[in-house]
């Protein structure tokens, strides 16, 4: 691929990375479970697009399958499963917070700055001449932190799953950015594990709903010393 096209690909990757970060912030500022799931689907779609651009721009064909799997599993299958779950259990589809939205956004902004400095230290001297995708590392670390933040401060069982998946998206993006993805069989295995994990957690949500009559993790307080 000639340099001008490569520059275009780099630019597109930058834009998509920014869009991914925006979806994570929108999740943090959202009140509705339905939005959580839709935003996650959108985020995974952008992620799949980044992977496709890595295939196009850097000739890493083994990522093609990972890109297709990202879109098929994370942008379509998992959101469909999660939507079914919340339809079937008839809960109040609003998120409960332990930290309110403005404070959450401020904290997540801080996390992005932190993530950027960590990314600097990882890339070190290689950063100056690094290809566009490695700049995405800061976004991926920020996603891991924001995912963890969602899991700890939002109280619905579904929001914990979305937080976990946001983290996983961050990890996947980091793999894309600094190593052009893992070997194929590893990627496929990871996708399989994630899909099974979501299915198992979905089954548990049904059972939590049945036995606790709510899917708030506040009711998960029986086991204590």
């Amino acid at each position: 691929m000639d340099p001008t096209n490569l520059q275009t690909v780099g630019l597109l990757i930058d834009i998509l990375a920014a869009a991914i970060l925006v979806t994570a912030f929108l999740v943090v500022s959202s009140r509705s479970l339905v939005f959580y799931i839709r935003l996650f689907a959108l985020q995974s779609f952008f992620l799949g697009a980044v992977a496709l651009l890595v295939v196009l721009g850097y000739g890493e064909t083994h990522i093609l399958i990972a890109a297709v799997l990202t879109i098929a599993i994370k942008a379509i299958a998992i959101p469909v499963v999660l939507s079914r779950v919340i339809e079937r259990i008839h809960v109040r589809k609003e998120v409960d917070f332990s930290i309110n939205i403005p404070a959450s956004l401020l904290l997540c902004g801080g996390m992005v700055i932190l993530a950027d400095s960590v990314a600097h230290s990882i890339l070190g001297a290689q950063r100056a001449d690094a290809p566009a995708v490695s700049r995405v590392l800061s976004v991926s670390i920020a996603m891991m932190l924001i995912g963890l933040f969602i899991m700890t401060t939002r109280k619905k069982a579904i929001t914990q799953i979305v937080g976990l998946l946001t983290m996983e998206n961050g990890v996947f993006l980091s793999g894309l950015s600094i190593t052009y993805g893992m070997p194929l069989i590893v990627e496929v295995g990871i996708f399989f594990d994630i899909l099974v994990a979501v299915l198992i957690l979905g089954v548990f949500i049904f059972r939590i709903n049945k036995t606790f009559e709510s899917i708030s993790i506040d009711s998960l307080r029986g086991l204590r010393e």
Binding site: L148, M151, A157, Q160, L164, M167, A197, I200, L201, F204, R207, I208, T211, F212, I217, L220, G222, L223
Partner: peptide, 16 residues
């Protein structure tokens, strides 16, 4: 109830 709670925490914490 307690075993589902335990399993939920187990899968979530270990997956993170």
């Amino acid at each position: 109830e307690s075993s589902i709670e335990a399993a939920w925490k187990y899968v979530i914490i270990c997956s993170v």
